Structure formats: structure tokens, C-alpha cells
Simulated assay, not measured.
Amino acid sequence: MSLRSGLTGAVATVAVTAVALTVPAAAAPRAADHADHTATRQAMDAAVTAGVPGVTATARQGSITWRATSGAGDLRTGAPRSPQDHYRVGSITKTFVSTVLLQLEAEGRLSLDDTVEKWLPGTVRGNGHDGRRITLRNLLNHTSGIFSYTADEPFARTHTLDGFLEHRYDTLKPEELVAVAMSHEPDFAPGASWNYSNTNYVVAGMVIESVTGHSYAQEIRERIIKPLGLHATSVPGTRSTVPQPSSRAYGKLATTATGATYDVTELNPSMASSAGEMISDSADLNRFYSALLTGKLLPPKQLKEMKTTVPARGIPNVRYGLGLTDRTLSCGVHVWGHGGGIHGSVSEAVTTADGRHSLAFNFNGDWTGDSDAVIEAEYCGK
């Protein structure tokens, strides 16, 4: 089961983050070291049967890598998906952003207990929002109460068919996205509850720039992408295309899963900003999450902070850390990661706590398909 939300509001029903259930470490079984991915391939084929144009996936167990695809990468030509496909990863961006902020904390340049007001005076104000009461930790674990700009109805309408065709190449500044959120009342008082808000991570990206004097994109490139050699990973800014090799991305551009299918590959990802604009591929995502969970990117104290979770209000068996989801699968295997959705693209990336068994995959359609079934199949064989 996935928590369904979207960078495009109610328009595209895309998986933004995976569900999670925390269990004591001693009780969590180890993922089986198996080379048979038959169930995973079957789950991918089932997603295509359900209407997803195509799926690309990469799993890594120790030194062994398995890659597979199903379905089409281009509905016009019938070309298949590629194991090397680049794709938009949506809210998986959040883990990268959180990692940078935690690195800055480890360097003594900020504290998770700092208020938003300290770094962005006057930015989070209006209709009951008050950055003086919201900490950086509140941003990262979605307990700030800040309204999500993607839930704004006028914003969502710009991404239905007519609105998307008119606005797909518009550039939106982070300050504009935050201003949309500030036009609404908060969801709750800071720390009083939990609600997934893309505005939290737009603000977090702005904090990175305030602290470092560099864009969040530059900090991600210098601190994560280059050191790990993530050659397929990028922060595109306003670039509307996806690097090759890549498949086309498809959406319904409606609040229903019926009707015509549209090619939505090209768009200006500034509408997602630091909440979800990044591009990557499955191999890079596996490398990133494995490095993160094995302490190659954060000191033990900050990794512990990232893995300190809170319940996701109203969603059974879900817990959320600092840009990191926490889930126990039906067979008891315990995995960490994040999911992401944006027009025409639904992605998931998870790994076991020891970083040995990782899985990342992408659907190039945003209206159907069971991403949880693929994860269950890989780790539980069903």
C-alpha cells in the first residue's frame, strides 16, 4: 500500500512516499539472499497489464545486480523500456535534501532545532503560519503543519489538460510556491500532528541556500552526486527534457484514471522545486540509498536522527523519518527508502537497513499500477 499524493495535487494520482511500519531491529528478518526474481518480474508484468505503459527496475543484492523491464517506453513506436532509463524521481528528491541539511548539522552550521525564521525571516508567515514556531526538524518530518501548495485548487487546475498544455513550460520560483501555501491556513499547530506537505521541502531547499550561499542543487551535486559517482542523477532546475537514454512519460491529465493518455515527458520541473524535481536511474538510486543507510553520507548521530520516525496521521502502519520512510513488509522484512511521483512518473527506491539488498523502479505512467506489489515481490517473493 502506498500513500498516494502528488506534486501536481489531485491531478495525477502518483505515489509520493511508501508506507512503513517500524519493528524492533532484533525482530526484523533478514531479506533472503536469492537470485530468483521471478515474482518481481511477474509483479512488473501485472502493472503493465493493469495499464502502466512500462516498468524498469534494478535490484542489487551484495555484489549481484539484476535488471529487468516490462512494457513500452514509447507508446507511439512500441520501443521497450531500458534498464538504463533516466526518469523523474519526484519526492525521492526529499531524501537528498534532508541528507544535505543533516550534513550541515554535522558540520555545526545549523541545528535541527533552529527555527525557519532564523534562516528565512518573514518567509513562512500568513493566515496563521509562523516560522518562529516551526523548526527544521518539523519541516523534514512533516510535522510543521504548513499547508502543501500542491493541495491548492487553483494550482492543481493548472495541471489538468488545458492548464498543463498552457503552463507546462512555466518557471516557478520557490518563493512563489511558498506564497501559494501561505494563502491558506496551516493544517495544524507545529508539532501537533503529521501531514505530508511538499511546501516543507521547498522551504528546506531555501534554508540550504540561506546557510551555504549556494543553491540546494549545487550542494546536492557537490556533496552527494559527485562523491558517489551518480552519473545518471541530476537536479534539472528549469530544463524541460529528460537525458537519454529515457522513455516517454504518460498521464491522463485528469482526476480520473480513464480517458485519453497524453505524453507529458517534457515539463518545467521548477513547479516541484526541492520537493521533487530530480532525475535519476535505478542503479544510481540503489547506490544512493545503500550508501546512506551504511553511513557513507552521514555520521552515526545524524543517521540516527534521519531514522527517528513519527506516525503518519490517518494512515495505518506508516512512519516517516527525516526524508526517509520506514516500512516492514508482509513477510517481516524491514526496508527504508522513499517514493516519488510527478507527471507521468511513479518511482520507488528501498533498501534493507544493512544496505545489502536494494530495489529501485519506475512506472512511466501516473494513473495506475501497484508499486507496493513490486516491492513485496522482490523481498517476500509474492
Results as ranks from 00 to 15, higher is better:
Arg4Asp: 15
Trp367Val: 04
Ile146Pro: 02
Thr308Ala: 11
Thr328Asn: 02
Met278Phe: 03
Thr13Glu: 12
Tyr201Arg: 02
Asp36Arg: 08
Val350Cys: 02
Arg81Glu: 11
Thr199Leu: 03
Ala349Arg: 04
Cys380Ala: 03
Gly381Val: 07
Ala283Asn: 13
Ala106Gly: 15
Asn195Glu: 13
Leu21His: 12
Gly126Gln: 07
Leu120Met: 08
Leu329Ala: 05
Ala260Cys: 04
Leu293Arg: 10
Pro80Met: 08
Leu165Pro: 01
Leu298Phe: 02
Gly163Asp: 10
Leu230Tyr: 00
His34Tyr: 05
Thr351Ala: 15
Asp263Gln: 04
Gly90Asp: 08
Thr77Cys: 04
Glu348Asn: 11
Gly145Asn: 07
Asn362Trp: 00
Val116Trp: 06
Ser82Gly: 07
Ile92Gly: 12
Leu228Asn: 05
Ala179Leu: 09
Ser197Ala: 15
Gly54Val: 06
Asn317Ala: 14
Thr99Val: 15
Gly131Asp: 11
His231Lys: 15
Met1Asn: 08
Gly229Trp: 01
Gln103Glu: 12
Leu177Met: 08
Gln84Tyr: 11
Pro154Glu: 12
Thr17Gln: 09
Gly78Ile: 10
Arg287Pro: 06
Ile220Asn: 01
Gly90His: 09
Thr160Glu: 13
Val116Phe: 05
Ser148Ile: 02
Gln84Leu: 13
Lys226His: 15
Gly340Cys: 08
Ala192Trp: 02
Ala353Leu: 05
Asp354His: 04
Arg88Lys: 09
Gly73Val: 06
Gly213Cys: 04
Ser280Val: 07
Pro154Met: 12
Tyr196Asn: 07
Gly71Ala: 13
Ile315Tyr: 14
Thr65Glu: 15
Ala15Arg: 09
Ser98Gln: 08
Leu303Val: 01
Thr150Phe: 08
Ala232Pro: 03
Arg287Ala: 14
Asn195Met: 11
Gly213Tyr: 02
Ser247Phe: 10
Asp263Phe: 04
Gly259Leu: 09
